[in-house]
């Protein structure tokens, strides 16, 4: 376990170098160093200016990032209710995924073997935005994610569990960075193969013809 902590510390160092600003509090900006310092009760990054953004009501954590983050999609009324399935016909008979096709596959369900209820908690299942919902962004890091991810912070909890399909046009609105970054990578990968596959196939043919006709130099 010691080594794990060491690795964490090294990584913390590397990450802060990458971002050019570490988790240090803004001591320099605050004339009273004592007020700015952490009591040690919170982690330093919880007291960073702007950290509270993660605690604001909805999941629009992207606000601070020019809106390139998730959460720009629309929210259904039922998402604010205490029992999201009140009056939904067939609930209790059918399985969750038979109604919620879009949430069927996620890294957590299909690879982590985590079930819906482990995150959405017991009955009745509240809408995500219901004030007391365990998945309300003000508490989901502590009530849900931290059950499995030790030390989960509000920022961590902005990870989108049910990812939208990255290449679909709707994602450009809902989570634009996700959409553009994945498209960029797909174009890069596609471009490399679109050029190389035909290129090397013809190349093979050409060399074969050259060899069969007994030319000495491959480039004659």
């Amino acid at each position: 376990m010691q080594s794990k902590h060491l690795i964490r510390r090294v990584l913390a160092g590397v990450l802060s170098c990458l971002l050019l600003h570490g988790p240090a509090t803004s001591v320099a900006a605050n004339p009273n160093a004592y007020e700015a310092a952490s009591s040690g009760y919170f982690r330093d990054q919880d007291t960073l200016p702007g950290a509270y953004i993660q605690y604001r009501g909805s999941s629009e954590g992207g606000g601070a990032w020019w809106g390139i983050g998730p959460g720009s999609g629309s929210v259904k009324r039922s998402s604010f209710s205490a029992d999201a399935h009140l009056g939904v016909a067939g609930y209790g008979i059918r399985s969750c995924v038979s109604c919620h096709q879009a949430q069927r596959y996620s890294l957590h369900s299909s690879r982590g073997n985590v079930t819906c209820i482990q995150c959405h908690r017991g009955q009745p299942i509240a809408g995500i935005h219901h004030y007391y919902s365990a998945l309300n962004p003000i508490r989901k890091h502590a009530y849900v994610c931290a059950k499995c991810h030790e030390g989960a912070s509000p920022s961590f909890a902005t990870y989108v569990i049910h990812e939208p399909s990255p290449l679909s046009l709707a994602t450009a609105q809902e989570f634009s960075l996700f959409y553009y970054a994945v498209w960029l990578m797909v174009i890069l990968a596609g471009g490399v193969f679109a050029i190389f596959i035909p290129y090397v196939s013809l190349w093979a043919l050409r060399e074969l013809i050259g060899l069969l006709s007994g030319r000495k130099y491959s480039h004659d």
Binding site: R8, Q45, W65, E163
Partner: peptide, 25 residues
């Protein structure tokens, strides 16, 4: 490497992006 630690320094949703970019590359 350590998603919880990373999200102390940047929003957690960057992990969604990072995982896909990592995978495709």
């Amino acid at each position: 490497y350590d998603p919880v630690l990373t999200s102390d320094y940047m929003p957690g949703w960057l992990l969604n992006v990072a995982l896909w970019v990592h995978r495709i590359e």
